[in-house]
Nucleic acid binder design. Structure first.
Length: 1171
RNA sequence: GGGCGAGUGGCGGAAUUGGUAUACGCGCCAGUCUUAGGAACUGGUCCCGUAAGGGUUAAGGGUUCGAGUCCCUUCUCGCCCACCA
């Protein structure tokens, strides 16, 4: 007999599946399944045993569904951008592309060596420009939709490596690579506005019934929706009361909105806390404001906080720190009280409004802070108890009472005083009512004395906080509503007096051990709270809902029920907040998708035109981060400096120019003077002034405001203008020439001066223009510009507007495109004044400068790259159409394949990859680019495989198991079977070589089973085969691979016992085994005479009739204990079963002399006699 | 601190979902074969007890005719989040 030798057969079948395209899928077929597994990162170390688990689970599932007759796609690719490749490049000076290629080849070999049935024709790679072209394209979609934006933000910064770190590279506040403490640094970043999709992402979870609850819950928690209220707290400025007067007409200018989920506790808000980064604080501490008495102290605290790392700031059990904002008070809108304001780093700037109302009595953090800063703590919610033994009755008198309870302790023998009531079944502490005007402490002391006679106490303290307790008091026929106060009194000495006869009639006293209070006192509904209070040194914090107290008209109401009313009462509004933050979408790294954006100093952010995609990563010599936090790409000038596509486009377009020069065609002295001086055709200022003065010596100067009649004015201005224009025109001839040189220009003139005197000289200069709007057109400047734009049929923001006055800029900046307002420095205002309103590159100093306006701007590429999550956020779409050059995936193909039916992956991706890709998909779906609303119908998480030492497999721990070695030793089929057998797919298991021999033995037995082929087989073999078909099918669908293997083992063991199996049965068994051990199954299949691959076969159906036997074994129990076993017909009636059970001799023995009180029959399972 | 999950032989684990606890495999013990070792095969293997029988699913309590499974309390471990108002 041939021996089972996997080495001889496995490679051969792997090649054959490749060459015959056994697992390549077409985009058509009646029934389809899309089975996906998270694609791997091809690391230099290769795939370890732990990585293989999801691929195997996917492979078994894919093979199963294929056999079930589904057109099953099981694709694979490479998530190959990322830090390890870049770090490797830095160390070894090897281009990441080179090492990545090598690593992919290795990983591919590894995956194939397991006998996986991936469809390699659909292989993708995120670093392939043909792939990341579409990643970039999707980014541009986000940009277009306004969901991608730039902002400066605090990022994680490693001071040693001088580089920004992604969140996932920060482990416990330390750099993953060098272990140094991570700092915060402000850097320009790209963000994706995932927060816009918070609600949709949360809602979408409802459409995913087949996702594990744990995964959905984690996502929901991550999104962190909470309903609360935003309430304004108005301020009262003490240091500078004038500020209060400067409030708006309604007196409501200075206020701070706070966010709270407990508006019901507002009456207990005794101070306000702002985060150190709060905008109000920033303003209050700047140079322009002077409202704080301790500005320097506050500034110092802010500085201090800024320098702190996250671990310092959030260190476990860290003492609260903060500083009061002196000189200003807030007004509690519920009580009208003035309360102090603080800044403290326990309030986060990024959540809610960055400010809180502090309620120390009902919030642990506020309590800690209040204790430290000695701030008032006011209880406003009382815990509520209703006695379940004697609950309040309807229609009875409501009798509120202030009630005190005294717990009198003798610490010498550790006992506590108990009141034993004579007329009622009560054992209580000292209990009684407080009288009018009496303090609570006095009341409790008095009650103790009256009821017990004891009078000397070494200490007395309040236990817990005030409570509300309700019960029906039968002896008074009323519903008691107690304002309950509990005190602990430590007895100083035994001295006591006789109690009155009246009291004696009611009760007697007893000393009971302190440790037994929980059982020896009855009935006290508030006992749990008392016990908890006794154990604590302080009153503590009650953070739940209850009955409101000290809350004005809301007192004695249920805090939950009046929440909304209180919000309304203080003029707040109900709001929803999310913990989800926008996604920091840039990395200062080389090995990632370049963000396809160009920064132009004229146009700002310009998306790279689609035709220019992909923006390919350039080759560089150095991959080291620059140290400034910029990507290494920033150093590649050739790549970074580009023509601005927007400016290039504009070159070809018609330019719409409007000139508005007071200095040229206007009528002011200054204009003239400036013009001369600035133009530089006078040798010096003195000369220019002298010339001008001389010129105007004999002429009146109308702008001095003398009165004149209109005819004189016209006459005067005509003469004035003629002269002036003549003079100035000489000076501006050159400028007009320059304007003439501009290609594709349409020109208009708006003049503050008169058409009468200006038009003629312009005509004379043969200056071509379409409009000339002087002061005869009685329109405002805005209107004039709008008229011109309308005539040119362009938007008014298309106009370039040239002016020489500051006022025009002010007037028109909201109408026009700011970037197209150009100042001319030789005119009225001059360079210095123009600089106050325009950036320097929008000011012309010389005529010739006008061409700079139309020159393309200086443009640089964005040098940040995308994070590793980018490529994986949409890869599942690309598999449906991996070669498409026109779009990322054809919609027909998407519709055929998507959504993904089964998605295998790790739990660690729940809140990152899984949420990110849902976000991308929802967005693309909204843009009409994707057909499926949710990408993954069923998520199948796996438990991680630990190393043999029970620790997570990692190179540094040295416990990595290399699958190559194990395969070489036992063969791929054995490893597959063993991995499946290890444990349930969802559970974490430790890899242990010890048991693998069992899997090998099992396969060897299957191999040897050929010897048992015969014409017939035992009936139990046939029956078991059908049971096994059913079981394995069910188990694969439930991912219980371990029990599937075990049931196949049982089948093989059974065949070995009878040593007979028909060829047909053996073949059926091979088909179900083939999903787990593909090579072996194929090999035997071939040896049995089959020409075609086993994977074109159909999964066998089981015969349900065979599964039901005629008789069933049942267990007979007496009082739940098994006493006998009986065999009855499958359809036996209850009566028959009971009779049979009673006839069992053993049962008879047990039942002798006993009476059967009850008989329970569960058909096919048990009979139970209760005696 | 919060959320989620788990705890069953020497080990990995099973239990038709409330109905014979410990399937299947590893390991171990005994035997067969063999010069020997290994492999293979046969039998045994939760604990106490010679046996009859009794006990046992982290510990304790509860519901039930019946609990590994449901409920409560406590302990231990794992994962995720963590000053989120």
């Amino acid at each position: 007999m041939k021996k089972y030798d996997p080495k001889k057969i496995e490679g051969r079948w792997q090649k054959k599946w490749q060459s015959e395209k056994t697992f390549v899928t077409k985009d058509s077929g009646a029934k389809e399944k899309y089975i996906l597994v998270e694609f791997p990162y091809p690391s230099g170390a290769g795939l370890h045993m732990g990585h293989m688990r999801p691929y195997m689970a996917g492979d078994i599932s894919a093979k199963y569904w294929r056999l079930k007759g589904y057109n099953t796609m099981y694709p694979i690719g490479w998530d190959a951008f990322g830090l390890p490749a870049e770090n490797y490049a830095i160390k070894n000076k090897v281009h990441p592309e080179v090492s990545t290629k090598k690593n992919i080849a290795n990983a591919k070999r590894q995956l194939a060596s397991w006998g996986t049935g991936f469809d390699w024709s659909r292989e993708i790679n995120t670093t392939d420009p043909d792939y990341y072209k579409w990643t970039q394209k999707i980014f541009l979609e986000f940009l277009k939709a306004g969901l991608a934006y730039e902002a400066t933000g605090l990022i994680n910064w490693c001071p040693k490596d001088k580089t920004g770190l992604a969140n996932e590279e920060v482990i416990d506040g330390k750099c993953e690579r060098c272990g140094s403490e991570v700092e915060k640094k402000e850097l320009r970043q790209w963000y994706l506005k995932i927060t816009d999709y918070a609600e949709k992402l949360l809602e979408g979870l409802k459409d995913l019934p087949e996702w594990p609850e744990a995964v959905k819950l984690q996502q929901a928690n991550w999104i962190g929706k909470s309903e609360g209220a935003e309430i304004d707290f108005y301020l009262n400025f003490k240091k500078d009361p004038k500020v209060n007067e400067n409030r708006g007409p309604d007196g409501k200018a200075a206020h701070i909105p706070v966010f709270t989920t407990r508006p019901d506790t507002i009456f207990g808000a005794t101070y306000l806390v702002l985060s150190p980064e709060h905008l109000w604080v920033t303003l209050a501490t700047d140079d322009k404001h002077d409202v704080l008495e301790n500005k320097e102290e506050v500034k110092k605290y802010i500085e201090n906080v800024k320098g702190k790392s996250d671990i310092e700031r959030t260190a476990l059990g860290k003492e609260k720190t903060g500083v009061e904002l002196k000189g200003v008070k807030a007004i509690n809108p519920a009580t009208g009280e003035e309360i102090p304001m603080f800044i403290a780093d326990y309030v986060l700037a990024g959540y809610g409004t960055g400010a809180i109302m502090a309620v120390p009595a009902h919030d642990e953090r506020d309590y800690d802070f209040a204790k430290k800063f000695d701030l008032p703590i006011r209880q406003v919610v009382a815990e509520h108890f209703v006695d379940i033994n004697t609950p309040p009755r309807e229609g009875k008198r409501h009798a509120p009472r202030v009630v005190v309870q005294g717990i009198v302790r003798n610490t010498k023998n550790n006992t506590v005083l108990q009141i034993v009531w004579k007329k009622f079944p009560w054992k209580t502490f000292v209990i009684g009512g407080a009288e009018d005007g009496e303090s609570l402490e006095d009341a409790v002391k008095r009650e103790v004395f009256e009821e017990t006679g004891y009078k000397n106490f070494s200490s007395i303290r309040k236990i817990g906080s005030e409570m509300r307790s309700e019960w029906y008091a039968e002896h008074k026929d009323e519903n008691r509503y107690a304002h309950m106060h509990v005190y602990e009194l430590i007895l100083e000495n035994d001295e006591h007096e006789e109690i009155s006869g009246k009291e004696k009639e009611k009760h007697e006293i007893a000393w009971v051990p302190f440790d037994s209070i929980s059982t020896s006192f009855k009935p006290v509904s508030e006992m749990p709270a008392i016990l908890a209070g006794l154990n604590k040194k302080e009153a503590g914090v009650f953070a739940e809902s209850g009955i409101l107290i000290n809350s004005g008209k809301f007192s004695e109401k249920n805090s939950e029920e009046v929440k909304k009313d209180i919000v309304e009462f203080v003029g707040g509004k109900i709001v929803t907040k999310y913990k989800l933050r926008d996604w920091v979408f840039s990395r200062q790294r080389y090995w990632g998708e370049p963000i396809p954006v160009i920064h132009c100093d004229k146009c700002g952010i310009v998306p790279v035109p689609e035709k220019d995609l992909p923006v390919k990563l350039p080759k560089v010599k150095n991959y080291e981060p620059t140290g400034t936090g910029e990507s290494p790409l920033a150093a590649i000038e050739k790549w970074v400096n580009v023509k601005c596509p927007s400016c290039e486009q504009k070159k070809k377009e018609t330019k719409y120019l409007v000139f508005d020069f007071d200095g040229v065609l206007g009528d002011t002295w200054e204009a003239h003077l400036h013009a001369r001086v600035n133009m530089g055709d006078s040798p010096d200022l003195k000369d220019a002034v002298a010339k001008a003065e001389k010129y105007f010596e004999t002429k009146p100067w109308h702008s001095r405001g003398e009165k004149y009649d209109e005819s004189i004015h016209i006459d005067w201005s005509t003469r004035f203008a003629k002269e002036l224009a003549k003079l100035e025109y000489d000076l501006f001839t050159d400028f007009l020439k320059e304007i003439g040189k501009i290609k594709n220009a349409k020109v208009a003139i708006v003049s503050a001066g008169s058409k009468i005197y200006s038009e003629a000289p312009i005509k004379k200069a043969k200056f071509k223009h379409t409009h000339f709007l002087g002061m005869e057109d009685h329109h405002s400047k805005e209107e004039k510009l709008e008229m011109i734009a309308e005539a040119w049929k362009v938007d008014v923001t298309e106009l370039y507007y040239f002016t020489d006055t500051k006022a025009d800029v002010y007037e028109l900046e909201n109408l026009l495109n700011r970037k197209k307002i150009i100042g001319c420095a030789w005119g009225y205002a001059g360079e210095e004044k123009l600089k106050q309103v325009l950036p320097e590159n929008q000011i012309l100093k010389k005529f010739k400068d006008i061409h700079k306006v139309f020159e393309p701007g200086k443009a640089k590429r964005e040098t940040n790259t995308m994070p590793q999550w980018a490529g994986s956020s949409w890869y599942w779409l690309r598999y449906t159409d991996p070669k498409n050059k026109k779009e990322f995936a054809d919609q027909k193909k998407q519709k055929y394949w998507t959504p993904v039916d089964l998605y295998f992956g790790g739990m660690e991706h729940t809140t990152l990859h899984l949420l990110y890709s849902r976000f991308w998909n929802l967005f693309l779906h909204d843009r009409g680019l994707v057909t499926a609303k949710e990408p993954y119908m069923k998520r199948v998480p796996h438990g991680i495989i630990l190393g043999p030492d029970g620790e997570k497999m990692s190179k540094s721990r040295g416990n990595v198991v290399n699958p190559d070695d194990i395969i070489a030793l036992y063969g791929a089929d054995t490893v597959r079977v063993y991995m499946a057998f290890l444990g349930p797919h969802g559970a974490q298991v430790a890899w242990n070589d010890k048991g693998i021999i069992g899997a090998r033995r099992f396969l060897e037995r299957v191999f040897a089973m050929k010897e048992f082929i015969s014409k017939n087989e035992d009936k139990n073999v046939t029956t078991l085969l059908h049971k096994t078909i059913k079981k394995v099918g069910e188990d694969v669908e439930a991912f219980s691979f371990n029990t599937a293997i075990s049931s196949m083992m049982i089948f093989v063991n059974t065949v070995f016992e009878s040593k007979k199996i028909t060829k047909k049965s053996f073949e059926i068994f091979l088909i179900i085994l083939s999903a787990f051990a593909p090579h072996l199954s194929e090999e035997i299949w071939k040896e049995l005479g089959h020409k075609k691959t086993i994977f074109t076969e159909k999964w066998p159906t089981f015969d349900p009739k065979l599964l039901v036997s005629d008789t069933v074994k049942m267990v007979v129990q007496i009082n739940g204990k098994v006493r006998a076993e009986i065999e009855v017909g499958a359809s036996a009636e209850e009566k028959e079963i009971v009779e049979k059970a009673l006839s069992e001799p053993k049962i008879g023995e047990y039942l002798e002399g006993k009476e059967i009180r009850k008989t329970i029959v569960v058909k096919g399972k048990i009979v139970n006699f209760v005696v």
